[in-house]
Computed example of a mutant assay.
Amino acid sequence: MTSIIRIAGICGSLRRESANKKLLLRTQQLCAEHVPEARIDIIDWSQLPIFNQDLEGDPPKSVIKFKEEIGDSDAVLFATPGPLKNAIDWASRSKIGDRGDVLSGKPTAIIGAGPGTAPGSSGSGRAQLVLRQTLACLNMVAVNTPSVMLTGAYAAFKEDGSLENKKMEEKIVQLLKELVGLHNRCKI
């Protein structure tokens, strides 16, 4: 019996009605429905203080808990844009707690939603590009395709939380399967 691949879901936006939070929740549902070998645990990082290097020696409990949740995961799924830098700063510090840097070497994937509907709208494409550069510096291995960049996010969701665009849901499932495959290749 193989163990379940635990994916830490981290939403860039902390806003209650965030389109990225809705996208991450839908991705969690799609994972449960279509990718039985994995599960997404959404990590709440809203209680993290602003990163302060003076706190590394005696970090707040919220930082320790956050790092433990990521450290216990097999992979990471970021939903961006949003103020992820603060969360990444805390998670990547090697001097905090017993876990050290809990991001290095982790397989990761990125999804994102943007409000734009105009032709050429990227649906978080720019934010994803910047995040990819950061992840490379953190020694994280990212899934490159398919790209999940939801445009017109405010009108993209049905009342039940599913997406109007079923092709986008298929892309999300494919991205999750790619993340599982990347995790399996990285374990070898």
Rank of each mutant, 00 (worst) to 15 (best):
M1V: 14
T2I: 11
T2H: 10
S3W: 08
I5M: 11
R6A: 06
R6T: 13
I10G: 01
I10S: 02
L14I: 15
R15K: 14
R15C: 07
R16P: 14
E17P: 02
S18H: 07
K21T: 12
K22E: 04
K22C: 01
K22L: 10
L25F: 09
R26I: 04
T27Q: 01
Q28S: 08
Q29G: 05
Q29V: 14
L30G: 06
L30F: 09
C31M: 08
A32N: 11
A32M: 12
P36M: 03
R39Q: 12
I40C: 00
I42V: 14
I43A: 08
L48D: 01
L48G: 06
L48P: 02
I50A: 12
I50R: 09
I50S: 10
F51Q: 09
Q53D: 12
L55N: 09
L55K: 12
E56A: 08
E56D: 13
G57A: 15
G57D: 13
K61W: 13
S62Y: 07
K67Q: 15
K67A: 06
I70A: 06
D72A: 14
V76C: 05
L77F: 00
F78L: 00
T80H: 07
T80R: 05
T80C: 10
P81Q: 02
G82L: 06
G82M: 00
P83C: 14
I88L: 15
D89G: 08
D89R: 13
A91E: 04
A91C: 04
R93H: 07
S94R: 15
I96Y: 05
G97Y: 06
G97S: 06
R99L: 14
D101P: 12
D101W: 10
G105H: 01
G105Q: 01
T108M: 12
A109S: 05
A109I: 00
I110A: 05
I110K: 00
I110Y: 06
I111W: 06
G112E: 01
G112Y: 03
A113K: 07
G116V: 03
P119M: 05
G120S: 04
S122K: 13
S122T: 15
S122N: 11
G125N: 02
G125D: 00
G125M: 02
R126E: 10
Q128V: 13
L129G: 10
L131K: 04
R132K: 12
Q133Y: 13
T134R: 08
T134Q: 11
L138A: 11
N139W: 10
N139C: 13
M140Q: 07
M140A: 02
V141H: 02
V141I: 15
V141W: 02
V143F: 00
V143L: 02
T145L: 05
T145G: 03
S147D: 12
T151D: 04
G152M: 07
Y154Q: 14
A155F: 10
A156H: 08
F157H: 09
E159A: 13
E159I: 13
D160S: 07
G161K: 04
L163F: 00
K166W: 05
K166C: 04
K166Y: 08
K167T: 15
K167W: 12
E170K: 11
I172V: 15
I172H: 06
L175V: 04
L175Y: 01
L179K: 00
V180E: 00
H183A: 04
N184L: 08
I188S: 11
